[in-house]
Design a protein around this nucleic acid. Structure first.
Lengths: 165, 165
DNA sequence: GTAGTGTTACTCGGATAAATATTGTCCGAGTGACATCGG
DNA sequence: CCGATGTCACTCGGACAATATTTATCCGAGTAACACTAC
């Protein structure tokens, strides 16, 4: 039960990109600098988010990343699935069909109860993640966090964002 | 988001140990044979369960493993935590305190909102796991599964269990 | 002054190595059963 | 025949490699801005 380290970075980056105005973009280098992360590695996670349809990337000078859709329609689940992959955490290797207790296929019409229970729990987990939208997180941050922190974030985005075309 | 492979084995073993009578034990070799797993590796997971207070181990000839408490008071969460460790899946590395946006500690009195959201989802996940007891799984198996499969399991346990002392 | 064009610098993207965690294996310490020996 | 004792075989437990996954890095392809030249 472990979640990759890149998920946190991905969420923070998505949250920061919320501050962009219009269809401006922010380069990966700026995102890495703001979070003090290795730029080359952060790219991998950003690319995953592009593949997942959460971010858009623009090439060339004044290029960078921006959200592919409104922050209201991006959930934590979307980000986690994009970065970590959508495979379920628990993979049933059909242990019951192996060893001396094994029978022919006709004995296993019903799915493994253990698998069902585990998958059900994970489904609940995903629902909880899906209930939190990126806009909620940002809103809470703007309301609750130290104003200086908010100012710094906005100032950074304003200074580094690029308006393409 | 990945769950170790040993969790499945651990749950199956615990379920099989439910079939023991009295304070009999079943050796790890028998558990491994029944599930067609490498015995030496299965030991690692069994040991974790012993550390977690789910199983008891008996040394020497006619030794082996048995449940440390009734199957009604063992949940899937207990097993998962024992095998995978109790650390949360999402570890907040306090990204917000790094990089050019960082401030002194007084700016971070409230915990990171992202961390809270992720941990809350995981808490829901754990509650779902905690709601499923080992006895429920076994009962469902006895009721729903193919009778031949049940018979094989019981026969195996009866043949290999040892009554210590 | 303006439009066209070539160069340039900056961006992302994927292929490539290092580090870490997980998976799998082995050998040693402990313990109860069994056979043997004595009463 | 019964009990004590020494040996033995079987068990778990922890230390040791091999593999897979994750983390980190580098270099190349593409693109738009910029400068220069011609009109």
């Amino acid at each position: 039960m472990k979640l990759g380290d890149g998920v946190e970075a991905a969420i923070h980056c998505a949250a920061l990109l919320t501050g962009l105005q219009g269809d401006a973009t922010l380069p990966a280098a700026a995102l890495a600098e703001y979070h003090d992360l290795s730029p080359s590695y952060l790219l991998k996670h950003l690319q995953r988010m592009v593949s997942g349809g959460i971010l858009e990337s623009v090439s060339g000078p004044s290029g960078g990343y921006r959200l592919a859709r409104p922050a209201e329609s991006i959930t934590l689940l979307d980000i986690v699935l994009a970065v970590e992959g959508s495979a379920p955490a628990f993979r049933c290797s059909d242990l019951r069909k192996r060893g001396p207790g094994a029978l022919d296929a006709s004995a296993y019409l019903k799915p493994c109860g253990i698998n069902i229970a585990m998958l059900k729990a994970e489904q609940v987990y995903r629902q909880a993640l899906a209930a939190t939208r990126l806009s909620d997180l940002v809103k809470e941050f703007l309301d609750e966090a130290d104003p200086r922190s908010v100012d710094r974030g906005c100032a950074f985005v304003d200074a580094r964002q690029r308006q393409p075309r």
